[in-house]
Amino acid sequence: MPPHPAPTRQWRVPPALPALKLTGAVALLALALLLDGGDRIRLALAVLTAVALAGWAARDLLAPVRLAVDPDGITVVQGFAGRRRLPWSAIEKVTVDRRARRGLTGELLEIDAGDSLHLLGRHELGAHPAEVAEALHEARPR
């Protein structure tokens, strides 16, 4: 009997994040209408910002899985809601970029596929980038 392949592991946007973005868009529109004061430019800017926030939330709802791994390679989100399959042979390295700025440390998971570089943060993965990098290193065939 052939061995079963390891199950696919996925990292996704936490469900609360798109809800928070949509709530922010609605609150921004409500405030803009409440404090309008007849200023059309201010209202237009608030509407544009709310639409951008709603679009950002829509991306989270359309493509919640940002990264998936299986024995054959990884799948990453690309563009607004597209996906790109990367076989393990195409992946040159997986690292975590840590940068300190203004007293805060930010981490990004970097997946270098030679012709493309994929950067994913904690809020996109729903986990710390270092933990995801470790899981990717463990999943990669030797």
Rank of each mutant, 00 (worst) to 15 (best):
A54K: 01
L53Y: 04
L136Y: 11
H4A: 09
V13M: 08
R40C: 06
G24R: 03
D60H: 12
G37Q: 13
L136T: 08
A27Y: 00
L136E: 11
L62N: 04
D115S: 14
E134K: 15
A90S: 14
L62T: 09
T8E: 15
A133T: 00
T75N: 07
G106R: 14
G82V: 03
G114N: 07
A135S: 13
L120Q: 03
D112I: 09
L86S: 07
A113W: 10
P3C: 10
A16P: 05
L67M: 08
A63H: 13
E110N: 14
L119N: 05
A25C: 03
A130I: 10
S89V: 03
V69I: 11
P7H: 14
V65H: 06
L33I: 00
R59P: 02
P129S: 00
G79E: 01
G73M: 07
K21M: 07
W56G: 04
V69L: 03
V77P: 01
M1Q: 08
E92W: 15
G106C: 00
I111R: 01
V94Y: 07
A54S: 11
E110G: 00
G114A: 10
E107V: 02
A52N: 10
A133L: 10
L117C: 06
V77K: 13
G37E: 03
D39R: 15
K21I: 03
L28A: 07
L108V: 01
H118E: 05
R59N: 02
P141I: 15
G103E: 12
V76T: 06
A32R: 10
P129G: 10
A81N: 11
E92G: 04
A6S: 15
G82H: 12
G73N: 06
I74E: 00
L22Q: 04
A139H: 09
T23A: 15
A57N: 06
P87T: 09
R84F: 02
M1C: 01
A133E: 03
A27R: 04
P5G: 05
A46M: 02
L43Y: 04
H4E: 11
L33Y: 00
L48V: 14
R42V: 05
A30V: 13
L22Y: 01
E110H: 15
V96E: 02
L109F: 00
L67R: 03
A81T: 02
T105E: 12
I91G: 13
D97F: 11
L136K: 15
E138N: 01
Q78N: 12
A63S: 05
L108S: 05
A25M: 05
P14T: 13
T105Q: 13
P2T: 13
R9L: 11
A54W: 01
L61V: 11
R84A: 03
R85K: 09
D39L: 09
P18K: 05
V47P: 02
I74V: 15
G55N: 11
P141F: 12
E134L: 14
G121R: 00
D70H: 15
L31Y: 03
G79Q: 08
V77A: 12
T8L: 06
L67S: 06
L67W: 11
A127R: 03
R101T: 12
A68W: 08
L28K: 07
A100D: 07
A52H: 09
L125E: 03
R122K: 13
R85Q: 12
P64F: 01
P3I: 00
P129D: 02
P2I: 13
K21T: 01
H123V: 12
Q78C: 05
V76G: 05
I41P: 02
L43I: 13
L86P: 02
R140D: 04
